[in-house]
Design a protein around this nucleic acid. Sequence first.
DNA 1: GTCTATACTTGGATAGAC
DNA 2: GTCTATCCAAGTATAGAC
Lengths: 217, 217
Amino acid sequence: MAKSGTASGVSATGSERSAVTRRQLVNAAVETLKSDGYAGASARTIAQRAGVNQGLIFYHFGSVASLLLAALDAVSEERLERYDAEVSAAIGPSQLVDAAEGIFRNDLDAGYITVLVEMIAGASSTPGLGSEVAKRIRPWREFAQSTIEGSLRNSPLHGVLPAPDIAYAVVALYLGLEMLSHLEGDPDPALALFVHAKRIAGLFDAMPSTTSPEESP
Amino acid sequence: MAKSGTASGVSATGSERSAVTRRQLVNAAVETLKSDGYAGASARTIAQRAGVNQGLIFYHFGSVASLLLAALDAVSEERLERYDAEVSAAIGPSQLVDAAEGIFRNDLDAGYITVLVEMIAGASSTPGLGSEVAKRIRPWREFAQSTIEGSLRNSPLHGVLPAPDIAYAVVALYLGLEMLSHLEGDPDPALALFVHAKRIAGLFDAMPSTTSPEESP
DNA sequence: GTCTATACTTGGATAGAC
DNA sequence: GTCTATCCAAGTATAGAC
């Protein structure tokens, strides 16, 4: 089957070995960012967690920063996929808030947003990293924006509050809530906000499409 | 006048020298956190900026982390003082939003919230730092809470939205907006939010005290 | 009491082994 | 192509000079 793979032995081709090592390093980088933060994510710390020689980071990724970006990529991809599935199943404002709460709880447990926060904050200390991190956060903002746009279309708020601005605020709030929850070691105050949000969203559930029916001229 | 100070010369007493050095180090620590982030705030970097020997950090503060906490203290104190002055001059919701915008603009320019964000994110990498940072953020949350409480008292939202929860969200949003603005190098999306906030706040300006007049039984 | 010179540890990066 | 041993820079901390 494989072009040059081993049929059943323990040895592997170079590219297989490479892929395994890279994956181990990316996973270890994610875990290290979660537990030790950006400042604690050194080549040695990550490599030790991955169980490989520290020099491999530079061979496979060129620098620690590049590995951390790969870790951010891995998290982003996985998260966005999940978000998409959960949110697209939601119908109406209050179900959307429910989905958002589920996502937030899950992220908080898994520490995914911590990775994001650490990379944003850590970018200050590594020249050129900021724009790379910003590039990888754009999909999250776009996801938030299109979700909000869809929800706003059938709402009396349509036209009053532009979706891009709200999306920006939602992402910012999400990051901030994660920071505070993580710092205080207590997610309850953040989670309480979802209760209020759901109550308010419920007010809009009953009144779909209060805007003028003519959308396009 | 001074117990053992020099009358007019260039030399100074021990305690004066100490105070000068400490102040230089604290200022340099603040600047370093702003420009290089937590990960870049090493003893060497800070001391170089302060123009003093690197070992003095350990003599005067015991550790780099303690110096950084002193830097956070200095910023917190200065900021809270200013906030208090600006906010207490505001009357009514829309003036409050105006004050908040002024504060946010100023903080963004001066980089004060960056210091806060870097310390929160950096706390993950230094054992025991998290609770110390949390302790120093509590006054900010309390300030936000009492401000919001005062504004909410004469509002129809009184009783619907509890002030502590809103205060938590406001602080989180503030931190998140700073992070994103700083990362993207563009404060406009964040500032646009204040325009919307002001418009919404204006709706409440005209309707003071719509709750039942009986406050205490 | 204040500070400097020095010791030792950890981190990033690469030359060369396999 | 993949990895390890090694180099040098940067980091924290302190013993001892002033």
